[in-house]
Computed example of a mutant assay.
Amino acid sequence: MRTSSATSLYLLLSFLLSSLLLHRPTFAAKRSYVVYLGAHSHGYDVTQTDFDRVKDTHYEFLGSCLGSKDKAKDVIFYSYTRHINGFAAMLEDEEAAHLAKHPEVVSVFLNKGRKLHTTRSWDFMGLEDNGVIRSSSIWKKARFGENTIIGNLDTGQLIV
């Protein structure tokens, strides 16, 4: 009798342990993604109403993929409404992969933080020395940018 009780207990414990291990809840980690939707449909004379409408279309679009507009409002933390059409949202990897396959989506990419190299660009580039433009400064040699196109590299990345 003792052996059958020990065997039964062993089987019961094995069953309980395996069911706990196999049925424990899994939580997918959410990460910050940027979803790029291409160009805006609004023109150059844009009003705040136009910006609000773009933001609302972002909620509607993501809501159609997640199941509700409220879910979309919970995960979108930034809408690109001016120069590019897109949004940044906290998504699971599977959700981001699903969105990337949508015909209205141009691209989906992980939002990576970037290291800030300087907050004093003029000093960093040697254009000024403590706010003073020296006679040998490249600013003077370049006639302060006359006939020069100055570009700004904006990666579109947010640090979250």
Rank of each mutant, 00 (worst) to 15 (best):
R2H: 07
A6Q: 10
T7Q: 01
S8H: 04
L9Y: 10
Y10P: 01
L12I: 12
L13Q: 08
S14K: 14
L16K: 10
S19Y: 15
L20C: 15
L22D: 04
R24L: 10
T26K: 09
F27G: 09
K30T: 14
K30L: 13
R31D: 08
V34Y: 15
V34S: 15
V35D: 00
A39F: 11
D45Q: 10
T47S: 10
Q48R: 07
Q48E: 08
Q48S: 08
R53D: 10
G63S: 02
L66G: 00
K71G: 00
D74L: 08
V75W: 04
I76Y: 00
F77D: 15
S79T: 05
T81E: 04
N85I: 05
G86S: 02
F87E: 00
F87T: 00
A88L: 10
L91P: 00
E92N: 03
E95V: 05
A96P: 02
A96C: 04
A97P: 07
S107D: 13
F109I: 07
G113T: 10
G113N: 06
D123K: 09
D123E: 12
E128N: 12
N130I: 03
G131R: 06
W139M: 14
W139P: 01
K140C: 12
K141C: 02
N147W: 13
G151T: 11
L153T: 11
Q157H: 12
L158E: 05
V160N: 15
